[in-house]
Design a protein around this nucleic acid. Structure first.
Lengths: 202, 202
DNA sequence: TCAAATTCTTATCTTTTGTTAACGTTTTGA
DNA sequence: TCAAAACGTTAACAAAAGATAAGAATTTGA
């Protein structure tokens, strides 16, 4: 995929949040850089301050932590979604989690310093504040929904929800990552699947 | 507490996000209104679009859902924190949860329409976008932390975390609400407390 | 291509949680 | 003030989840 086409796709998806005019866009794209992340490579690792916000042009990533030597996968992102370790990026504290490419992944990034420059640039400041607000609000709602499902639902119910709405995750992620994502062990998810299969296959 | 003092406290806490000059502040406060919520009264209920964002001057609230006829408490807010059903407020869809005052609670509110007006008012737009961004980012980080604890920790570990950092919640909330907040039943929390007591009280 | 690693399932056993109910204590509200 | 409601603990049992290990199928990567 060539750079111009990639920028065009990015711009199109940004429309969901803000629209740039030509002059603004020209300044904005000067702050962008592309990254190709080979499968299994890391976007961020614990102990490092996350400097970039990425937008996935192609590929996918998983977010995971290590607990007692075990990897625990907490989240996934796919094409046309943003990727960053929000807490680290926003607070400038070292990240506590890994973000890893699950396939060869191509990203458009902007870094913290660039964003601060744009936020300080009168030409872009307003639009960047708005952009930041709308993106944060979007992900806030995602988290709110997910928290609610952890509070009010059983692992089995969360899996059934995923069956009806989580196509990408189900089709593209190995099952033991999905188990972690649901808050249970892979063995437990296997049993839940069996339970569903024998009781009500539909 | 008189209105002027309340506004002053509110302004002081907003400094965490944005600073208003006098002219801006005068316009801003014209969009504010005060609410006194008697104990057990609701700030929002399911089926209703949440129009307000509140800031708690005194008192506290809990967020809860109803599942199979049972109340499940998912979150709490105390003095000097914002309160709203974010998803409903932002998407203009009916809320799915209750927010209830746990004590007599006094709030400063602004509503959705007011915020839209301020966002459209050149005098305030930039600052309001920034305000919205920083508040959303703040709560995004809270949710990120909480999600991580659900993925990587056991209920017992989450309770121990609360013991070391959750003073307000532990001291001001009944235990069965705290149990829900941790993702377990009240009976289960009672057992966890017993386990901790007999094994290592410290 | 082929050995090694990964993935998923299944089984066994242990631990934890959920459910229901009982009981004493505390709080509430008329 | 006093009956009713709410709260926390405990017990007994059922259901679910965690831990560990074994085995088959698939994927991987050199």
């Amino acid at each position: 995929m060539d750079t111009l086409k990639a920028l065009d796709i990015f711009r199109q998806h940004l429309e969901k949040y803000v629209s740039f005019n030509e002059a603004e866009w020209i300044v904005f794209i000067q702050h962008l850089h592309f990254t190709a992340l080979k499968k299994k490579r890391h976007f961020i690792e614990p102990g490092i301050v996350c400097n970039d916000v990425g937008f996935i042009l192609s590929g996918s990533v998983r977010y995971y932590n290590i607990k007692d030597g075990e990897e625990i996968t907490g989240y996934f992102s796919f094409e046309n979604e943003f990727v960053t370790s929000y807490k680290s990026y926003l607070t400038r504290q070292p990240a506590l989690n890994y973000i890893q490419a699950l396939e060869d992944t191509v990203l458009v990034n902007f870094n913290y310093k660039s964003m601060q420059q744009m936020l300080a640039n009168p030409m872009l400041a307003y639009k960047m504040e708005r952009f930041g607000r709308l993106v944060a609000e979007y992900y806030l709602i995602c988290y709110e929904d997910r928290m609610t499902s952890f509070i009010t639902k059983t692992p089995e119910e969360r899996y059934l929800d995923l069956l009806s709405t989580g196509r990408d995750i189900l089709q593209r992620m190995p099952q033991h990552y999905i188990a972690n994502f649901l808050g249970i062990t892979p063995v437990s998810l296997s049993r839940i699947r069996r339970r569903i299969l024998v009781s009500g296959p539909l």
